[in-house]
Amino acid sequence: MKNRILNSVVVLAVAIGASAFVNAVTKEVNVKESQVNWKGYKVTGSHYGTIALKSGSLEFQGDVLTGGEFVVDMNSINTTDLSGEYKDQLDGHLKSDDFFGVENHPTATLKISKVTSSGKNSYEATGDLTIKGKTHPVDFEISVYGSKATANLKIDRSKYNIRYGSGSFFDNLGDKTIYDEFDLNVDLVF
């Protein structure tokens, strides 16, 4: 009798565990149609532009977002509020070791580690963001509608050893100060 009950419990546990994976789906992000916009701030204004995804995927349990993973092509940093020589100078500086050091760190990654529903189609997410070989958690909101998702992230560059022009590391920068936080606005198509 005990064996029959134990066997029934084991069978039930396996069935429940297996059913949890039945609806698990990974959806690849269309990197050509998706867009990542960045905006950095300084005392005297801001600059903005785009950066391309190299790859990405979102994980779902049925229709519910459960995770995801993204690789960003750091060589694709593109300033869109400037043109000509000034654009080329800023793009080059952002790619240099003063900022993202793309020669040694050609990609950045984000792996979503926790997702909590915050309303219909809306989620609070936590992910491990790696920039310049340093990994730190980042919290952000993400919304999913059909085959599209949007997310907004605020990143503190000082956590990734990006110190150039930072008032957190240097005194007396005055109007040359570049704020530590920058924004990423992400539109995904999958």
Rank of each mutant, 00 (worst) to 15 (best):
T135W: 06
V144E: 01
V186K: 00
T26C: 10
E85L: 05
T66C: 04
L65M: 12
D63P: 00
K42A: 12
H105F: 15
T26L: 10
H47I: 14
V102M: 07
S55I: 06
G56D: 05
V11R: 03
I142C: 02
V14M: 13
K27L: 07
S96W: 10
I142Y: 00
Y48M: 13
T79D: 13
S8W: 10
Q89C: 10
D91W: 07
S96M: 09
K176N: 15
V64G: 00
N23G: 11
L173D: 07
N7P: 04
G133E: 04
Y48C: 13
L153M: 15
G146P: 01
N78D: 15
F140T: 02
E141K: 13
T130W: 06
Y86W: 14
T135E: 09
N37Y: 11
L65G: 03
N23H: 10
N161R: 12
L110I: 09
V102P: 03
N23V: 13
S118Q: 09
S34V: 11
S147T: 14
N23I: 11
R157T: 12
S168N: 15
G84C: 12
T116Y: 04
I162E: 02
F169N: 06
A52E: 12
L65D: 03
N78P: 07
E103C: 00
V115C: 03
S118K: 02
D139C: 01
D98T: 10
L94R: 02
S76I: 08
D98K: 07
S113N: 13
G84E: 12
L90V: 14
K159T: 11
L53G: 08
T126Y: 06
E141Q: 13
D73C: 06
D183S: 12
S19I: 15
S19P: 10
I51L: 13
D156C: 03
V115Y: 02
V11Q: 07
F100H: 01
T107H: 04
T79Y: 04
T116S: 14
G174N: 08
H136Y: 13
T44L: 14
A125H: 02
A125C: 15
I51N: 03
T109M: 02
A151K: 00
V29Q: 00
S147H: 11
F140R: 05
A149F: 04
I51T: 06
K42D: 13
K27I: 09
G167F: 07
M74Q: 06
L184I: 07
L53P: 05
D171T: 11
A15S: 15
V25G: 07
G49I: 05
D180Y: 03
G56E: 02
E181W: 03
I51A: 09
Y160V: 06
Y145R: 00
N37A: 15
T135D: 09
R163Q: 13
D187H: 10
D175F: 09
T44V: 15
M1F: 15
S19N: 15
V14H: 13
G146F: 05
G127L: 04
I77K: 01
D180Q: 00
E59P: 01
S166A: 12
T126C: 08
G167D: 11
K39A: 14
K154P: 07
Y41R: 06
K54N: 14
F99P: 02
K42I: 09
D156G: 04
R157M: 10
D63L: 00
E85C: 05
K95H: 08
F140P: 06
I142F: 01
F99H: 07
R163T: 13
Q35V: 15
F182Q: 05
F100E: 01
F100N: 02
T66Y: 01
I155K: 04
